[in-house]
Structures are given as C-alpha cells and as structure tokens.
Amino acid sequence: MSDMTAITTILKQILNGLQSGSIYALIALGYSMVYGIIMLLNFAHGDIIMVGAYLAWLCMVRFALNPALAVAAAVAGCTALGMLIEKAAYTPLRSSPRLSLLITAIGVSYLLENTFQLIFGAGAKTVPPFFNAKNLSFGGVVLSSNAIVTIIAAAVCMALLTLLVQKTKMGKAMRAVSEDMGAAQLMGISINRTISFTFAVGSALAGIGSVLYCTAYPQADPMMGSMLGLKAFVAAVLGGIGSIPGAMIGGLAIGLAEALVSAAGLSTWKDGVVFAILIIVLVVKPTGILGRSLNEKV
C-alpha cells in the first residue's frame, strides 16, 4: 500500500467517524437533556430512533410519499412519542425512587421493541435513500455526500439547540429546572411544561438522528435502537451527562474512536474500545469530560 492510499483511507475513516459521531452526538443530546432535568437514564431513547426509522420506511415504501414528508413524519412522530412516553410512564413516577423510573424506562424500551417486532416482524426493512447526491471528489479523494450532509445537519441542529437553550425563555426555564426544580417552581416556571418540552426537543433530535442514521445504514429493524442507544448514552456520559457541549464532544469522540479502530483492522474490538475509553475517562474524571461535580451534602 502506497502512502497516498494510506492517507486516503485514514481521511475516509475520519470522515466516517465524524459522520457516525455526529449521529451519536444528536442522540446523546437527548439522553443528556433528559438526565439533566429529571435525572433519568432514559433507556427508551434509543428505541425512539427505531420508531423514527420505521416511520420513514412506512412513508416512503408503504405510502410512497415524498422523502421530505418522510423526514417530517419521522421527526414529528418521534417528538409526539417522546412526549407521550413522558406523560404516560414517567410523570406518574416523578416522586418515586429513581430506580423505579429507570426500570420503567427499560419497560418502555422493551414495549417499543416488542410491539414493533409484533407489527413489522423481526426482519430488517430497507429504507430507500432520502436524496440522491453525487459523491464529491477532491484530487482522487472521494468524499461521501451522505457523510457531509449528516455532519452539516448535525452541526446546524446543535447550533440551533445551543441558541434555544441559551437565548430563549424556554431555554432559560429548562436550565432553571435542571438547576433546582423546587426553586424554579417558586419562580413561576411550569415544571410539567418544561419537562415535556425537554422531552419533545430531545425526541425531535432523535428523529433527526434516525433519518441521518438511515442515510448511513439504510435499515430499520426492531432491535436497532438498543446498541445505538447504548453507544450514544456512553457518549453522553463520556462528555459529562447533563452538559450539551459535552454530549457533542462525547459523540464525536466515540464516532472517531470507532472509525479509527475499524481502520486499524480491529473492528471486532470496537465496542470494547468504546467502553474502555469510557472507563478510563470516568476513573480519571468521574463526572465525564465537561461534567460538573456535585458536592456531597451531609
């Protein structure tokens, strides 16, 4: 192998890494925001992505709709589902021990996986491409247009989210509720609306994530959410759960690490490497890269 092809391979893998990394980051944001506000590891989040992928498949294959409509349906469906799950399963448990909430989230995740398996069967459905674009080529280096679109879309979403959280009234309310729920309520912030809104935003990001994921791996199957969700979740913890820039950094780091491990020909080890990075970061900095540490109160 000449030097040139080696460099091309590495560049390609870095691009792949950034692509899957931005998908992880989008999904990780959902985990992170929900954790920040109600301290719940929302295990059902990965399955919301699965639902999004099925919605896109339904629109495009069953109903032969325009891909743009399919994207809109996936995002809207995920948003509605996220809010529904929050209202039906998590609101009744707001004052229960956190472990009950966690088990409920696992229950919701099982429910979504098995319901979809019951309806659509265990086999994977092929999601057709959302758009046709030629791959770009720079002096022999071919860049996948899917990857570029994914990275740009993810970056735009994250920028919008940052604006939403930092500049709007609702964003301020979200930050206040995650800081101190009781005090926020005393200041006249509606807790229920804010939490609902957080789930909506997180699930919408998951919807976008599912569309982008389908451009990279054009398949929908009932169990796709669990490993994807787990990786994104690791990304959120790695970056510091509850922190929005942390989720982005974590997602990109995981995506790049996976791509580079695969490029080195060790793709069967990549899950192990992801978790090893997580463990090392947590041992050195127990709250993740950008996480804030809470002082122990006696």
């Binding site: 954790y35 956190r98 080890w269 899950d271 192990g272 978790f275 997580l278 463990i279 947590l282």
Partner: peptide, 21 residues
C-alpha cells in the same frame, strides 16, 4: 469510587468489555 448512575455505566462498560474480550 463512583456513585449512582455512573457506577451503573462503568460496570456496564466492564461487562461489555468482558464480553468483547
């Protein structure tokens, strides 16, 4: 050394590593 959810994640990580190994 970690608490709560972080302990959950780190043990999950170790068990996944055991599986991959």
């Amino acid at each position: 050394r970690l608490k709560g959810d972080y302990l959950a994640i780190i043990t999950l990580g170790f068990s996944e590593i055991i599986r991959v190994v």
